[in-house]
């Protein structure tokens, strides 16, 4: 047996991400306090045994709200990124493989989309539709398709003239089979890295939109809306902004480390 070096970066990334996913799942069934229950007698309590992260301006337990926020952020950015990954990769690899006029048209549309910052694209969508979780997901999907399309397209173009593709062609495999069975698995590491970069961009984009009041509507918490509510009280209740901020940083770091670590393997 080969002694495999432990990939610390990957391991830490997986542990962090798994931790937050666990919190997200737990938050559906259990939070220490009701994240929506207000009590003016418990306004701005400092962190304590009962309220691990203190309470906010309505006397709500920040820890419980952060748990739900993690869930909301992961659900929104996770589902958005998965769908845009699938669509983007499909479009990118097809056009990369076939080339020609379709490639030109789709990629120019793609370029046009990519030339606008994804957060702006998302904002336009939210402004056009109603402010809901669904809109937010759709907006993020549209915003993130171009980056995935480009990554997969360049992988397919780089690999499509290799010998193993040619031999697959000779043995009579269909184009679809060649793309999805032969080419893409070989570009796996680039795709996974792209996925992890996209995922943490989505987490940040969701946070930004919610911060601007365009994302999840109150009283539902998301990391962004928590930060936006908390920023008003930076001077008097610093813990309110600090904890959600730390959680967001750790979530993003976890996902980034998975991508980095995977690339090193």
């Amino acid at each position: 047996m080969n002694k495999k070096k432990i990939n610390f970066v990957l391991a830490i990334g997986i542990i962090l991400t798994a931790f937050f996913v666990t919190i997200a799942i737990v938050s559906v069934f259990y939070t220490p306090c009701d994240p929506y229950d207000m009590s003016f007698k418990e306004k701005f309590l400092e962190p304590s045994g009962k309220h691990l992260m203190g309470t906010d301006n309505f006397g709500r337990d920040i820890f419980s709200r952060v748990m739900v926020a993690v869930k909301n952020s992961l659900v929104i950015s996770g589902s958005a990124i998965l769908i845009s990954f699938i669509i983007g990769t499909f479009v990118g690899s097809i056009t990369g493989y076939y080339g020609g006029i379709i490639d030109e048209i789709l990629m120019r549309i793609n370029d046009a989309l990519a030339s606008i910052p994804s957060i702006l694209t998302a904002m336009v969508f939210v402004a056009l539709m109603d402010k809901s979780q669904k809109t937010l997901i759709i907006a993020l999907i549209v915003a993130f398709i171009p980056s995935f399309a480009r990554v997969s397209r360049s992988q397919v173009i780089a690999l499509k003239n290799r010998d193993f593709v040619k031999s697959a062609k000779l043995s009579g495999a269909s184009n679809f089979r060649i793309i999805f069975k032969h080419i893409l698995p070989n570009g796996k590491s680039a795709l996974v890295t792209g996925l992890s970069v996209g995922f943490n961009n989505a987490i940040l984009a969701e946070a930004s939109l919610s911060f601007l009041g365009l994302g999840i509507q109150p009283p539902d918490p998301s990391i962004g809306s928590l930060l936006s509510e908390a920023q008003m009280y930076v001077a008097t209740a610093p813990y309110y902004v600090v904890f959600p901020a730390i959680v967001m940083v750790l979530m993003v770091v976890g996902v980034v480390m998975i991508g980095e670590g995977y690339g090193k393997n």
Binding site: M38, N57, P218
Partner: peptide
């Protein structure tokens, strides 16, 4: 008014 809305939501629940 937004804050009032949040408090009322809690009461109506």
């Amino acid at each position: 008014h937004m804050d009032t809305a949040l408090v009322i939501k809690d009461m109506l629940a």
